[in-house]
């Protein structure tokens, strides 16, 4: 498989009250790897991204990134270290323009400010298809564009590991292909990526490696082709949602 592990979760648990949204989850992401994280609704995918990006703190277990324990680290420090994410429900800065949204991430996302801000912003907006919306208020974007803006902001911080939460949800087949191509392009600029998606078909277009979550537990970790023939995966995943 890929080389050195850059992000690892060991026995990570996250509780909401008495409910365990993540139960002793262990996963690792190798350098150059793209991991598809799938599982039914409510299985803990978004919670896992929240715990890794620092918006929630794990109750138990160890999170490490590039050999450093990051459990108690604040989200902005994780962002500086190179962890970033998009949101399932996008989080743009509504009252600011699209360009300002990206500028903030460019200005603060890395230690050491850059001199080529304009060029960097234009490149990112072009990649995410938002060039024409640059001067518009973020609040005026449609949901798909807001998701792209989330991605643009995340990319502007030059992440080493990017966690993408259901970027393709709600898109039609053609749009889904566009997003898949985009993520395949993004792969080249990051050292590792975790792609959360509900739709298995989409995952197939972006990676071979998958992990399957069910009720906060990892029930499968391996190749996509093996996942679809794994009886446990078929039972929890397809049993609840119908055909892949």
């Amino acid at each position: 498989m890929e080389g050195e592990v850059i992000l690892s979760l060991q026995g990570v648990t996250k509780r909401f009250g008495s409910m365990e949204a993540l139960s002793r989850v262990s996963l690792s992401l190798g350098r150059g790897q793209t991991l598809g994280l799938i599982g039914p609704n409510g299985s803990g995918k978004t919670t896992l991204i929240n715990v890794v990006s620092g918006l929630l703190y794990a109750d138990a277990g160890t999170l490490s990134f590039l050999g450093r324990r990051i459990n108690g680290m604040s989200p902005h420090r994780r962002s500086h270290l190179g962890i970033n994410r998009t949101f399932q429900i996008p989080h743009p800065f509504h009252g600011l323009t699209v360009r300002e949204n990206v500028d903030i991430a460019l200005l603060f996302g890395r230690k050491g400010r850059r001199t080529d801000m304009d060029q960097a912003a234009e490149d990112i907006l072009k990649l995410t298809g938002l060039s024409d919306q640059s001067g518009q208020m973020a609040s005026s974007l449609n949901t798909g564009q807001k998701k792209m803006l989330d991605l643009a902001k995340a990319l502007a911080t030059e992440p080493k590991v990017l966690l993408v939460d259901e970027l393709a949800a709600g898109l039609n087949a053609a749009e889904t292909d566009v997003v898949a191509n985009l993520l395949n392009q993004v792969k080249k600029s990051v050292e590792g990526m975790v792609i959360v998606e509900h739709v298995m078909n989409f995952i197939r277009k972006v990676t071979e490696d998958v992990a399957v979550l069910d009720a906060g537990r990892v029930i499968f970790s391996g190749k996509f082709a093996d996942a679809v023939s794994d009886p446990k995966v078929m039972e929890v995943y397809l049993g609840t949602k119908g055909s892949p």
Partner: peptide, 9 residues
């Protein structure tokens, strides 16, 4: 929340 991810303390 999102502002932290943009690297702002």
């Amino acid at each position: 929340f999102a502002v932290e991810l943009a690297g702002v303390n």
